[in-house]
Design a binder for these strands. Structure first.
Ligand SMILES: [Mn+2]
Ligand SMILES: [Mn+2]
Ligand SMILES: [Zn+2]
Ligand SMILES: [Zn+2]
Lengths: 171, 171
DNA sequence: CTCTAAACTTGGAATGATTATAAACTAGAG
DNA sequence: CTCTAGTTTATAATCATTCCAAGTTTAGAG
């Protein structure tokens, strides 16, 4: 609930309006640990905000990123940008197979960010500390399937593909 | 010249063919400090390889990324993915105004990467350590232009936009 | 409250980076 | 030199993201 307040505060201080859509997006972003994409946010809010537009999600994300309260992590193997409302220094781990992104506590990122802030000469707006590879689950998965020598050419995932295999009762 | 060899070696060991196109792309990637996008590579090689196709650039980049010898840094404010053939632990600084990406030496990234490798449980394929913001030049630039309160809505950059203002004799 | 200008939202169209395809080429093993 | 699986390439297709023109809503002045 504190992170939500931080984003709301940022909007207020920037003199921007606090619309229900923005509030909903902010709340979702601030409370999830999912590092969602615009599409994910859109789908998760649609039930409660039937009129919500994807364009608004993108607009709001851009606004929050410009305000420096949301970081742009980039793609996780899917072709969509993932966002992170947790701007405290931390490491993100992206699985290029299941496209999930999780956080990893680290004792060095703080020093790293500090170092960058003081030595770069840049006016920093955001961080993108992501290591990508295969998560434990997907490694096992890969071990099962002898990984048919298919090199090259990847299939593009369809628009509405959901992730979530946690132990899921999806679909 | 050593980095070039590393990429070439990776292709060889994977049993992939060493075509002139791949070699050219590899050489460019291995020797530049530019963190180029596919388009940039394409444009820089076209003079010497008139028949080169953008598709080949993308294909080769994917191959190199899959081999783990090239990292995907993501966008720098432009809407194109930047690549980095330097896979040694280091920090990248992206300017979201001039879209340039430079390296920053750091004494902590090594420990960080080490930490991630040993504690994550992930099979790591690549790193994306990027801090984004405004480079010193663009900060000055911004100071000059009172930064007209234009919030929201960004203009999309056109396909052939070149960067390079180093002290350039462009155009 | 009421009113209103400015800020937002929205559906739908447009854009353009990246991918897919199919046909023509060639690296390189034998 | 031969032969073919791996590559390249031109071109079409895809689809995440951005743009646009209207229709709404917010928040502050009166
Ligand atoms: Mn995170
Ligand atoms: Mn770099
Ligand atoms: Zn996974
Ligand atoms: Zn700059």
């Amino acid at each position: 609930m504190d992170r939500t307040e931080k984003l709301v505060q940022a909007l207020r201080e920037a003199g921007l309006r606090l619309t229900p859509q923005r509030l909903a997006i902010v709340r979702l972003l601030a409370t999830t640990d999912q590092h969602p994409t615009a599409q994910m946010i859109y789908e998760q809010l649609r039930p409660d905000y039937p009129s919500l537009s994807l364009a608004t999600v993108y607009n709001t994300l851009e606004t929050l990123v410009d305000l420096g309260v949301v970081n742009v992590l980039g793609s996780a193997g899917d072709d969509a940008v993932h966002y992170d409302a947790d701007t405290d220094p931390h490491v993100n781990l992206a699985c290029i197979s299941c496209h999930r992104v999780i956080d990893l506590p680290s004792q060095y990122v703080h020093a790293l960010e500090q170092e960058v802030a003081t030595t770069s000469g840049y006016r920093l707006l955001g961080a993108r500390v992501v290591y990508y590879g295969l998560c434990p689950d997907c490694q096992r998965e890969a071990a099962r399937q002898p990984a048919g020598g298919r090199r090259h050419r990847r299939r593009r995932r369809r628009r509405g593909e959901h992730h979530q295999t946690q132990s899921g009762s999806e679909e």
